[in-house]
């Protein structure tokens, strides 16, 4: 809303403001008022420009991030080409760079985490959105789930390292795989906990948006509560719930610290889900400051670029679905 862009010519005739009892003081004050009004008009113009610049800065920031990533990964793109992405060996000492182990590690850990977390986040969403929207118990659950999102990832990582990894090692002993403890499986477990809140809170608000006449109609036909959820609530919110899962996935793909601490950090292709590995984010975190050769560094940044593009696409799709749903 732009008030002053047009018609903002200031004429001298603006000056006389009305002075009720014209004593010298009141006249002086009126003049002062006029002068400061002119000052304010200038400030107003500056302020409007500043706002627009702030809006522009956001766009420049994102374009800048994209450009920086592209420019810095050019050496790697040029010398390694597209096959970099499915190269199976990563050995910077020999100057061999293949990103496949990390892509695979990322995909495995994220999707496994998603698989584990979906039942829980869906349960939270249904519980808070449909069964018990109000009361102290749901309040407690809501706050607890928010807290899950608030705990720093480095603390999840530390806990995973100290508590979860030994447990997983035990488990691996039982089922007869190499008992390392650290690996894809451990990081998936941690990730699964960490990403529950995203899908849960979005799912909850989506479920609360289901129009009650729809539900009442189903109740009126004699449906039980579960049947209403199954045949009205879930189908109605399906796209919204999917968007929540997408946002969770975006989080899981980009999560760095917790994963870095429990995934084992090897550049070998993981043989199974219990094997140690690396994700794109964790390999960057581990090797960025050690990368001594330009191509090495650039190859790492190209991973960052891929990560950036993938998360952007996932998040934008998620947001679009939400926007369409809420309209």
């Amino acid at each position: 809303m732009d008030t002053s862009a047009k018609n903002s010519v200031i004429t001298r005739s603006d000056l006389p403001l009305r002075v009720i009892n014209s004593t010298p003081e009141t006249i002086a004050r009126a003049q002062k008022k006029v002068r400061r009004s002119f000052r304010q008009i200038r400030t107003e113009t500056v302020f409007r420009r500043t706002l627009t610049i702030m809006g522009l800065i956001m766009i420049i920031l994102v374009l800048g991030i994209l450009l920086t990533l592209i420019i810095q990964s050019l050496p790697s793109i040029k010398s390694l080409g597209l096959k970099y992405l499915w190269g199976k060996v990563w050995d910077p000492v020999q100057d061999i760079y293949g990103a496949w182990p990390f892509l695979l590690g990322t995909l495995l850990s994220s999707f496994l985490a998603l698989l584990i977390s979906i039942p829980f986040s869906l349960a939270v969403a249904i519980f808070l959105g449909e069964y018990f929207p109000k009361g102290w118990m749901p309040d407690f659950l809501k706050n607890a789930v928010e807290l899950i999102a608030a705990v720093p990832s480095v603390i999840y990582g530390f806990w995973g390292l100290a508590v979860l990894v030994p447990i997983v090692r035990n488990l691996e002993n039982h089922i007869g795989v190499e008992p390392v403890g650290v690996g894809i499986f451990s990081s998936s477990l941690i990730l699964a906990i960490m990403i529950i809140p995203y899908a849960a809170s979005l799912g909850r608000s989506m479920i609360q948006m289901v129009p009650s006449p729809l539900k009442e109609a189903a109740y009126g036909l004699g449906a039980t509560r579960w049947e209403v959820i199954r045949s009205v609530v879930l189908p109605y919110t399906k796209s919204g719930l999917f968007a929540g899962v997408l946002l969770s996935l975006g989080r899981a793909l980009g999560e760095t610290m917790a994963v870095t601490m429990v995934i084992g950090n090897t550049s070998l292709i993981p043989k199974n889900i219990f094997a140690p590995g690396n994700t794109m984010a964790s390999v960057i975190a581990n090797e960025f400051t050690e990368a001594d050769k330009p191509v090495y560094l650039s190859a790492l940044i190209e991973l960052g670029l891929v990560l950036f593009l993938v998360t952007v696409v996932i998040n934008l799709i998620g947001k679009k679905i939400i926007d369409r749903f809420t309209q």
Binding site: I59, T311, V312
Partner: peptide, 27 residues
């Protein structure tokens, strides 16, 4: 401009923190 700005804010919200680290390193 606001449309694009909003889009960029949405994008920024999803950018993995490690990528932001890389960016700050180069900037």
């Amino acid at each position: 401009l606001a449309y694009w700005c909003r889009l960029c804010v949405d994008i920024l919200q999803g950018v993995p923190s490690i990528v932001i680290g890389i960016i700050a390193y180069f900037w």
